[in-house]
């Protein structure tokens, strides 16, 4: 099990995956928006999406858990 965390403070713009979906290392699972830039968040592990802890338009801090991979 591993956690995908926010690389910096910002908003959740798009969530590209669903619970149960398989993701690979390097897949762009979420796109955040911060400092007026698109901030792609990539999976730093491979696995199945177990839980998505955020919704689109949520505000997150640096290091907040976004997705849990099972």
């Amino acid at each position: 099990m591993s956690e995908i965390k926010a690389p910096m403070a910002g908003n959740i713009w798009k969530i590209n995956v669903q619970v149960g979906q398989e993701v690979n290392f390097g897949d762009e699972v979420i796109i955040m928006e911060s400092m007026k830039m698109e901030i792609p968040v990539e999976a730093d592990d491979s696995g199945v999406v177990k839980e998505i802890k955020v919704a689109e338009n949520d505000t997150v801090d640096d290091g907040n858990v976004l997705i849990i991979l099972g």
Partner: peptide, 10 residues
């Protein structure tokens, strides 16, 4: 490098 953290300076 905007590929990482939008290229913002930390």
């Amino acid at each position: 490098n905007s590929k990482n953290k939008g290229g913002v300076l930390f």
